[in-house]
């Protein structure tokens, strides 16, 4: 049953590989960014999963002795989410500029135009 008990880590691995595959396998730049975002999101879930303490509640001080989940990874992931959003935004902005300059967002067509120069 341990395999099932670790289901959130299985989700992490599936999302990570799906995102990674999308980045590698697709020529469309927007799809690459989508894959990259899924890849990064899997890491967020990974950090949140490891913070869970069984039987623990949200880490809010109420005065009563309680068991808390570890709040540090939550904070780390807040930072990582900001980084992820900046990366996505910058990537999409670059795609807009690429589309203006090349007239396409398919990597093979861009490569073909680059090779002609």
């Amino acid at each position: 049953m341990e395999l099932l008990g670790l289901y959130n880590y299985w989700i992490v691995v599936v999302l990570m590989m799906a995102g990674f595959y999308t980045v590698i396998a697709f020529d469309n730049l927007v799809k690459k960014i989508v894959g990259l975002t899924i890849f990064q999101t899997s890491v967020f879930i990974f950090y949140i999963s490891m913070a869970k303490v069984s039987g623990g509640t949200a880490p809010i001080l109420t005065g009563e002795p309680e068991v808390f989940s570890n709040p540090l990874p939550h904070v780390l992931i807040l930072t990582a989410i900001v980084v992820g959003i900046s990366t996505t935004a910058l990537g999409l902005a670059l795609i807009v500029r690429i589309r203006e300059a090349y007239g396409t967002i398919e990597e093979d067509e861009i490569q073909a135009q680059d090779d002609q120069q």
């Binding site: 990259l36 990366t87 990537g91 670059l94 690429i98 300059a101």
Partner: peptide
Amino acid sequence: DRRALHAAFQYLILGTI
């Protein structure tokens, strides 16, 4: 050069990975 845009995008993907 417009190739700078494509180069920056490729670096963005690989650098983020």
